[in-house]
Nucleic acid binder design. Structure first.
Lengths: 108, 108
DNA sequence: AAATTATCTAGATATATGACTAAATAGCTA
DNA sequence: TAGCTATTTAGTCATATATCTAGATAATTT
């Protein structure tokens, strides 16, 4: 039992996980591709990915042998942005209108 | 040795600390006032305040007997907002122009 | 089916975090 | 100075986190 935001912020508290999120900006990456960008073991990255997944920040998609991870961008903007605008309302998060994409992929 | 942002996010990872930040929106509060709003001991709140202070999110000001804490609002917007706009650039943090206040308090 | 590749789960260990109680420090008041 | 209030520091304990190695699971290839 935990509030939504704690999970997100705790996920963001680790530099490796923040870097993973930034890496994923370029598009989806397999677990192995992600892991190879860091000096830590595969299993450790796997755990980091689990944390990010539990926080709802990334989603996975299996393709044959591999599992591809990708950002759930709105998730981050929603929780972090909401909090930010509550604590310092003079800085508002403005969501740019985007052409409603016709469902980029089935949601899990 | 730690990067700036980790401190901020780790500080935000705890619900008590996030609530403290929200409480401080109304204006500065003494340590005791802050503590009385929570079901945890004074010393625990003191530690939380130290964490927030180390992250640069709050500042303190002594007045006689008591120590008043207040938000360092830009700090939060700067680090969190920067990260947010890097990871999900389609959500930009817009800073509202504000009449440059003539130094609200010495920046200690 | 056996071997290979990709990724995860389990178990162990070290460090970090959050809470508490008790005691120390800082400033005020009599 | 003694006593009082506000807050922090110290010491302890339980839980959480991060990492590793070894082994398990899943899908592909031969």
């Amino acid at each position: 039992m935990e509030d939504m935001e704690s999970g997100v912020f705790r996920a963001l508290a680790d530099p490796t996980r923040r870097q993973i999120l930034q890496d994923l900006r370029a598009g989806e990456l397999s677990a192995g591709e992600i892991a190879s960008a860091f000096p830590v073991s595969g299993p450790s990255i796997s755990r980091h990915l689990t944390v990010l997944k539990s926080a709802g920040l990334v989603q996975e998609r299996r393709e044959g042998n591999r599992i591809y991870y990708s950002l759930v961008g709105e998730r981050l903007a929603t929780s972090v942005g909401n909090f930010l605008s509550v604590v310092c309302p003079e800085q508002a998060v403005m969501r740019h209108k985007r052409k409603k994409v016709p469902a980029p992929g089935v949601d899990r």
